[in-house]
Design a protein around this nucleic acid. Structure first.
Lengths: 205, 205
DNA sequence: GTCTATAGAGGGATAGAC
DNA sequence: GTCTATCCCTCTATAGAC
């Protein structure tokens, strides 16, 4: 099957054409979504012919899945690049939240990735689930265990608290940047981080 | 202009064809997004000919905008149907959060609406902003003023706290239902509501 | 392996009859 | 106002030359 072959070739990087195609398809799919993307424009952006694309990927759907999987893998590696969670909660947690939020607010490619993943989650549920399997779940487990291991924080339900923290900052990115809500209902990230930090501190009192 | 005419006719409901077209377009656009929607299928679902659609709406884009505006107006009325926020915070706030979350978790049409709004927020930023202008902003102001007026709650930044509350429950809906994350990283709504309630209570101590 | 050229289907939009 | 029939374009995907 073409998709399988493409994945293997790409993993061992025996062809640069595959990488050019994925780069071109990234531009196209992240800008226009799945249905709005054109294979002609992918070929143009990648600098190859359409037939070359179809020799490496089964069809438009296979290319889209290949791209999303590659992008998810890259994000996964970014998470792993983070240092393990250690130290004083009063310092570590605000820093972690602020860093995660700032990075998401600045990273336009991540925002486009998130937009497409949500927008196509009816057509491709399994692709949306990749985000949870490889990024949200590992990340939330690390934070949850950190919260649970620091009993002085006195957090009754660490797993649920992670959803509060994660939800607050992810939703801010979706609302302010992805949906362009900052012009209508603005909120500074510092104020959100400060409030979350304050809430955590209040638990230990 | 056809779109203006359509809006006026629809507002004074002088034609039932318009309503049928909007109904048909709702099925189509909410299921497939803007680019994935077909005007042929809209006509089929609405039970009218394609030419009739184009006699009431300028083009595909005008129909899409008309639909989104109508849906936003309906949601706006749902918000206004809610009783004003009064009473004991320990009772009112958990009830409000639980009711809002439950309604969003059960309302598949709202989830599809939200999915399309996010998915098309690059192509139609002004449509995504409707959600904040007519739903999120009025709602958040009511809650923020309620939090601020109850000084015994001792909340340092009510506006930011609203983002925590709103973000936590909206993100849960996006993650669990819209993106189908509940199979990978489940979270019961009760636990989230309980944690949010607990956090608010801790502020007053 | 990669290209050009094209097939074949379906898209949005409209002309003209009624 | 609404329909049928159709235009023209872009789309995905492939055949065949090199």
């Amino acid at each position: 099957m073409a998709r399988t072959k493409a994945s293997e070739i790409e993993r061992y990087s025996s062809s640069d054409k595959i990488e050019k195609i994925l780069q071109g398809s990234k531009q196209e799919f992240l800008a226009h979504g799945y249905a709005g993307a054109s294979m002609d424009r992918v070929a143009l952006a990648a600098g190859v012919s359409k037939a070359t694309i179809y020799s490496h990927f089964q069809d438009k759907e296979g290319l889209f899945k290949g791209l999303i999987e590659q992008l998810a893998r890259k994000r996964f590696e970014l998470i792993f690049g983070a240092q393990p969670l250690e130290g004083e909660p009063n310092i570590v947690l605000p820093q972690l939240l602020a860093k995660a939020l700032t990075q998401m607010l600045e990273d336009k490619e991540f925002q486009a990735f998130q937009r497409v993943l949500i927008g196509e989650s009816a057509r491709f549920p399994e692709l949306a689930q990749i985000l949870f399997r490889y990024i949200a779940k590992p990340g939330s487990e690390i934070i949850s265990q950190y919260l649970a291991s620091h009993s002085e924080l006195n957090i009754p339900d660490p797993d649920a608290m992670v959803w509060v923290l994660m939800g607050s900052i992810v939703h801010l990115v979706i609302a302010q940047e992805i949906m362009h809500g900052k012009d209508i209902l603005p909120m500074e990230s510092d104020r959100l981080i400060n409030s979350l930090t304050y809430l955590i501190n209040q638990c230990g009192k």
